[in-house]
Amino acid sequence: MGFIYFLCKRILAAIITIAVTITVSFFLMRLAPGGPFDLGRIMPPQVQANLKRHFHLDLPIFDQYLIYMRDLLHADLGPSMVYVDRSVSSILASGLVATLQIGICAILLALVLGIAVGMLAAVSPNGLLSRLIVNLSMIGVLVPSFILAPLLSLILAFQLRWFAIAGWGDGSWYYLTLPVIAVALPQVGIIAKLMRASLMDVLGQMHVRTAIAKGLPPATVLVKHALRPALFPVISYMAPAMANILTGSVVVEQVFAIDGIGRYFVQGALNRDYTTVMGTVIVYTSFIVLFNMLTDLVYVLADPRVQVGVSND
């Protein structure tokens, strides 16, 4: 009962969040100077007027908003204003393939590597590895992906020829690896650092001392008593991590010339392709909101102290 109530509540909140984001970006986008037909070749005024009428751009902005929302409720994202004869839905569908693959691989890589490295570092807090991680993760956080991505490309693809320099090709690991590393690396650093600090904290807690006093071997103490509570901060970070990976992929898709959502987003914004930008915004927002919900859900399942819908005071 409490759980279903919690779930409904979260879904409703998610819908409101998405609606607010759509509204704000709709007006921001249209209020930016220029329009989809101001660029490129010069058109006769009559043609331009026809185009504007076709896309309802001649109407007051609020009416445009109402029309857009009405179409959206019918699951119609509209036609692209720049890519002739392509609907936004088909653009998004083609872009999602690459973006999702990069994103999912990157978050898995970041989690597995980050947690493993963080654990190793926490077990010997003054060891070489531990200090290395603190410093390397600083670099991972400080170096932006638009520097990291070309560097990786230069060394691993151009010099060593292990991977593709750019493009998506058939989407195999030959094309996938570098973009995934470029997106995941900063998150590996952050997660490792988070995991290290959290596990060190838990290892110093009283209940771990109790576990040692029971005569349990160190590996059991670590895995059965320290690991689970230590993972809670990492779980909380999942949602911001996904957001960071998505924003990171915007840059990385540009650098590696991959036609993903991020690239359409940037191109769309530059060309004032209103409908395409709105479509990508909806996709991004939905993903981030969805991941926030998943994070909360995992947290509730992982920690018995979080009791949903029950007062605890």
């Binding site: 807690q205 009283m206 209940h207 001392r209 109790t210 576990a211 040692i212 006093a213 029971k214 005569g215 349990l216 071997p217 059965k224 008593h225 689970r228 509570p229 992982a302 920690d303 018995p304 102290r305």
Partner: peptide, 23 residues
């Protein structure tokens, strides 16, 4: 390890934090 919890045991002061909260 063979002694702890088998031949010598301990009860700590802090009952609130001495048990594993998630087990």
């Amino acid at each position: 390890r063979r002694l702890r919890g088998a031949r010598i045991s301990i009860i700590f002061q802090e009952p609130m934090t001495s048990l594993n909260p998630v087990m």
